[in-house]
């Protein structure tokens, strides 16, 4: 895909994840479609996700809720997380 409507937000969220989790990767190196959760990509796990969810709630003014049976679907990729935030943010 080319540039997305949430590109600026994606960069902001990538930086937030790296900072919140003290990761040893450059935020700029995280691609929009890279997997965040699970065995590929960034490899975040369930503990990281609660940590990021807390930071998201403080920064964007809404509480994360699972959209589906899969609690971690929101964290499928940077793009999916940014899209979720864009749709629910209050600040």
């Amino acid at each position: 895909m080319n540039a997305t409507p949430n590109e600026a937000l994606e960069r902001e969220v990538a930086a937030m994840i790296v900072e919140a989790l003290n990761l040893e990767v450059e935020a700029a190196s995280i691609q929009p479609d890279d997997a965040l959760f699970g065995d590929d990509g960034l490899g975040l796990d369930s503990i990281d996700i609660l940590e990021v969810a807390l930071v998201v709630s403080k920064r964007y003014g809404f509480q994360l809720k699972a959209d589906s049976e899969d609690n971690f679907a929101i964290f499928a990729s940077l793009r999916s997380l940014a899209t979720h935030i864009a749709a629910h943010r209050t600040t």
Binding site: L50, A53, L64, K65, A66, N71
Partner: peptide
């Protein structure tokens, strides 16, 4: 249910 996020 297996809620994970605090709101859930």
């Amino acid at each position: 249910p297996r809620p994970y996020y605090p709101a859930d």
